[in-house]
Amino acid sequence: MRVGLFVTCLVDTMRPEIGFSALKLIEEAGYEVDVPPAQTCCGQPAYNSGERPLARDLAEKTLREFEQYDYVVIPSGSCGGMIRAHYGDLFRDDPELMARYGKLRERVYELTDFLVNVAKVTLPEGEFRGPVTYHDSCSGLRELGVKAQPRALLAQRGVAVQEMKDCEHCCGFGGTFAVKYGAISTAIVDEKCMNVQASGAGAVVLGDLGCMLNIEGRLRRTGDASTRVLHIAQVLAGDV
């Protein structure tokens, strides 16, 4: 079975090590993994900003590059949500594209969802010790139903999760939202950071790099240099 790994533009440009951790996990689950070299953005920033022609071009490009694979796996609920929940809106006036997309859509998975529900992995206990707290990203939770999957995988690795207050609340990033509404975004992430710190865990783990950068950046700017902010792929792969 061949998996196309959609790395995401944020991972590619900011934290490529997350992509390597995701690749390692999928390969260790027994799958052949390709990383299409011409892949770029899923189109979400353009779509959320009302730039439908650009979003449509990027969606069609993504479809072209990934429709050959048995599965498409993405270490991001945000990009996964864009592809699974919103490409249909962009392709709705083109029956041929809709037909092709319909064949691909059900093969698109967020990383932890793929590992639990498709690969059905059993991970060995690892060396990382918690406790950690977990932040549920908006798109992964609400558009893809990613909630229990990362926690189940962390349990397999022997990582204790100490739930924070309002773990399902937004971190304030929201892509272009954080740029357009900076003051509101800052108030939201401040509350998230307080909940992370109040959990008593030494690290917050999550599945979206956008949330990760937002939370980590705010923690550091407000003087917290000790709380670790980790992507779930890194923890599961034993790369932290």
Score class of each variant (00 low, 15 high):
V35D: 00
T13M: 06
S226Q: 14
E216H: 07
L58R: 12
V204E: 04
Q234H: 10
E106K: 10
Y101M: 10
P37E: 05
L104A: 13
P131L: 02
R56V: 02
Y87F: 14
E96Q: 14
A183Q: 14
R52L: 13
A198V: 13
T40I: 09
Q162P: 09
R218Q: 11
F173W: 04
K147Q: 12
V3C: 03
R129N: 13
Y47M: 01
R92M: 03
C41V: 09
G238Y: 11
A233F: 03
Q162R: 15
G80I: 13
R228N: 14
Y87S: 03
T62H: 02
G80E: 09
K24C: 08
C138L: 11
V179C: 05
I74F: 04
G126F: 05
T13Y: 06
D12P: 04
Y69F: 10
E163Y: 05
L97W: 08
E216Y: 02
V189M: 09
Y31R: 10
A178E: 12
Y109Q: 13
C42Y: 08
Q156Y: 11
L111T: 11
L111S: 07
L123N: 13
G102E: 06
G43V: 02
V7S: 07
E60C: 09
A55V: 09
R52W: 09
F20R: 08
D34Y: 15
L25Q: 03
S21D: 04
R100H: 06
P45N: 04
L115H: 01
V159K: 02
E216T: 08
K165Q: 14
T122G: 14
L213Y: 05
R107K: 15
A152E: 12
R100G: 04
L90I: 09
D12F: 04
F6R: 14
A233E: 04
G238H: 07
L90S: 06
C9M: 03
L58T: 02
Q39V: 07
L153I: 08
